[in-house]
């Protein structure tokens, strides 16, 4: 069977939005994280961090979507028929009823905070993963208690110093996320206008 519907537009749109979000967030990360006297990232690193964060939140978003669809298949069809029709109307025909629109707005609101949490966790995770003291698992090394201690402390040493808020980058990710969501919403608005008026 040769498929006749291809998700090329979804792929292009996602590539565009991801590129935009990465570009914006890397600038925010670079500026915010280098405010203190002690710069935390290089420009190259800021792009890599932003790319990792955004890719991770996108992949997790897709997985959530797939599990929701799987859940829908499990539930009795009578319950989900309305939701399914609304979803297919949106995906296939870009038709959004008022109810769907309000649902989408709520969903975007939730997504914003969920992606903020994911990105913040991703940033901490990355900083832990990329620290230079990370244990090198080369077997010929003799056991080194100091190295093990550093590895075990890992991310926790960032949390031990709540006063050193610059190391936590809480505000940074929030601001970066807000900026990229603003840009993405703007692009989506322009797209939907263009489709409605053409």
């Amino acid at each position: 069977m040769v498929a006749n519907l291809w998700p090329f537009r979804a792929i292009m749109l996602q590539a565009l939005l991801l590129t935009m979000a990465i570009a914006i967030e890397s600038i925010v990360l670079l500026r915010q994280m280098n405010r203190s006297n002690r710069p935390q990232v290089t420009p190259r690193q800021s792009i890599q961090y932003a790319a990792s964060m955004n890719l991770l939140s996108t992949v997790l978003g897709w997985l959530t979507l797939f599990s929701l669809f799987d859940l829908e298949d499990l539930l009795p069809p009578d319950w989900t028929r309305g939701a399914q029709t609304a979803v297919l109307n949106f995906i296939l025909f870009n038709r959004v009823s008022d109810e769907t629109l309000s649902f989408l707005i709520v969903l975007a609101f939730i997504t914003f905070f969920a992606s903020f949490a994911v990105k913040q966790a991703a940033l901490w995770g990355l900083r832990w993963l990329l620290q230079s003291e990370f244990p090198q698992s080369v077997p010929d090394l003799s056991p080194d208690p100091e190295r093990d201690r550093l590895a075990a402390v890992g991310i926790r040493d960032l949390r031990k110093n709540p006063r050193d808020s610059s190391a936590l980058n809480l505000g940074t990710v929030l601001i970066a996320n807000a900026w990229s969501y603003a840009a993405v919403s703007a692009v989506l608005l322009i797209l939907s206008w263009q489709f409605n008026f053409s």
Partner: peptide, 9 residues
């Protein structure tokens, strides 16, 4: 009008 799929006939 779809933002996600294209039809290739």
């Amino acid at each position: 009008d779809s933002l996600f799929v294209t039809r290739i006939r």
